[in-house]
Amino acid sequence: MKITRSRDFTAERAWGAQNIANMNGITTRLHWTDQPYRWHINDGEEVFVVLDGQVEMRYRCEGVEHSQLLEVGDIFYASVGTEHVASPVGEARVLVIEKEGSV
């Protein structure tokens, strides 16, 4: 049993993470960041939940780039092959659920 207070979590570097759980090869990690990640495609599905702050999520579908501002409580689902990049507006804390070892 473990309780994590996400609003108190910080990391030494952008996208630093605290492992919450690993269930049958699926990881749940709490990330802190104040910098954009990088454009990438996961090798599996990904669920991205904003717990604190705001995050601009940019993604490409069929070669067309889209952008959506995610607020606290918003959930972004990236299906296999979805190219995307997360850019926080200031500091943000996000919960990421994905296949173990995914980028």
Rank of each mutant, 00 (worst) to 15 (best):
M1T: 10
K2A: 06
K2Y: 00
I3Y: 12
T4C: 12
T4A: 13
R5A: 12
R5K: 15
S6P: 04
D8V: 09
F9Q: 00
F9R: 08
F9L: 02
T10H: 12
T10I: 05
A11R: 00
A11I: 02
E12T: 08
E12M: 00
A14F: 02
G16N: 05
A17T: 11
Q18N: 09
Q18C: 04
N19W: 00
N19I: 06
N22I: 08
N22W: 01
N22K: 08
N22H: 04
M23G: 08
M23S: 13
I26R: 04
T27H: 03
T28P: 00
L30R: 11
H31K: 08
W32M: 04
W32N: 05
T33H: 11
Q35D: 08
Q35E: 13
R38A: 14
R38V: 10
H40S: 07
I41Q: 13
N42K: 07
N42Y: 03
N42S: 15
D43P: 06
D43R: 15
G44H: 04
G44V: 02
E45V: 09
E45R: 11
V47C: 02
V47K: 12
V47H: 10
F48D: 03
F48R: 00
V49T: 11
V49I: 15
V49A: 06
V49S: 07
V50K: 01
D52F: 12
G53T: 02
G53E: 03
Q54K: 13
V55E: 09
E56P: 01
R58V: 03
R60C: 10
R60L: 13
R60H: 06
C61H: 15
C61M: 15
E62R: 15
E62Q: 15
V64M: 13
V64D: 13
V64G: 09
V64L: 14
E65G: 10
S67E: 08
S67N: 06
S67D: 03
S67W: 02
Q68R: 14
Q68V: 12
L69E: 05
L70I: 03
E71W: 07
E71P: 01
V72M: 15
G73S: 11
G73C: 10
I75S: 05
F76M: 04
F76E: 04
S79A: 13
V80S: 11
T82S: 08
T82Q: 10
T82C: 11
E83L: 07
E83C: 04
E83M: 09
H84Q: 01
H84K: 03
A86G: 01
A86Q: 03
S87F: 09
S87L: 10
P88K: 02
P88D: 02
P88W: 02
P88Q: 03
V89S: 12
E91P: 00
R93T: 10
R93L: 04
V94R: 01
L95D: 05
V96A: 08
E98F: 05
E98G: 06
E100Y: 11
S102E: 06
